[in-house]
């Protein structure tokens, strides 16, 4: 059985400014990422990692190119849907450097918020949320407020939130930046396990070379283009 496509990008371009201030950030980037893969997006600071992440996350608008989320083409030199927020809500999950949970909602409500916006029945959403909390071994914390949890527990709740709407892709922006080496590796191992078990593609922006051997693919931005590097080369 061939792997299912999660993201496909063709000839994607992004630049800022014009004239003397023109900066070409991404030029003719083309790649495909499949479900079940954990892909590390690596590049020096200012090379366009977050810009690329935001474009495939349907947050930032490219100058030109094509983007598919799953089998659905969402961008073809223009957004093909009325609102990109619906795509994000239904098909994407986000993990940030800090947990960024909503501080005035308890753990279960943080998880149920997005399915509720997707008109999922509350009972169904809560059942799914509880399954995820159990999966991440924090089921007993469902009524706790984020301020009552440790950093690690909050990070697990944030990952659970990214999964609660059954996304096709999870976009993670430096999720290990604030963690020590051992914890960073634990988190990446967990993300890899999630990618496999939940059949979801995870694109992870990272500066941390220690975690690269645990990823399935490494995507680099070189000369404004994306290139895949063999993981075995960094092992």
């Amino acid at each position: 059985m061939s792997a299912q496509q999660a993201i496909k990008v063709e000839n994607l371009n992004k630049s800022f400014g014009s004239g003397d201030t023109f900066v070409d950030v991404i030029h003719d980037a083309s790649f495909t990422i499949y479900k079940g893969e954990l892909v590390a997006l690596v590049a020096p600071s200012g090379a366009g990692k977050t810009t690329l992440l935001m474009m495939i996350g349907c947050v930032d608008t490219p100058v030109s190119g094509k983007i598919w989320i799953g089998d659905e083409k969402v961008y073809d030199n223009k957004w093909l849907t009325k609102t990109t927020r619906k795509i994000r809500r239904e098909k994407l999950g986000f993990i940030f450097q800090a947990h960024y949970l909503i501080p005035f909602l308890n753990v279960i409500d943080n998880l149920v918020l997005l399915p509720q916006a997707n008109k999922v029945d509350e009972k169904v959403a809560k059942t799914k949320a509880r399954e995820l909390l159990k999966y991440f071994d924090i089921a007993e914390k469902e009524k706790a407020m984020p301020s009552q949890l440790s950093g690690g527990q909050n990070q697990r709740v944030a990952i659970a939130r990214a999964l609660v709407n059954d996304p096709e892709i999870i976009l993670a922006d430096e999720p290990t930046a604030a963690l020590d080496s051992a914890r960073s590796i634990d988190v990446v191992k967990m993300l890899k396990k999630i990618a496999k078990e939940q059949n979801v593609a995870i694109v992870m922006v990272t500066h941390d070379e220690r975690v690269l051997p645990y990823c399935d693919k490494i995507m680099k931005i070189e000369n404004k283009k994306t290139v895949f590097e063999d993981v075995s080369a960094v092992k």
Binding site: T83, R85, R88, E90, L92, G93, F104, L113
Partner: peptide
Amino acid sequence: MKEISIMKLIGLPNST
């Protein structure tokens, strides 16, 4: 504002 940005980023509609 931080929470509002997150809500918008993860896809919550403006109306919410």
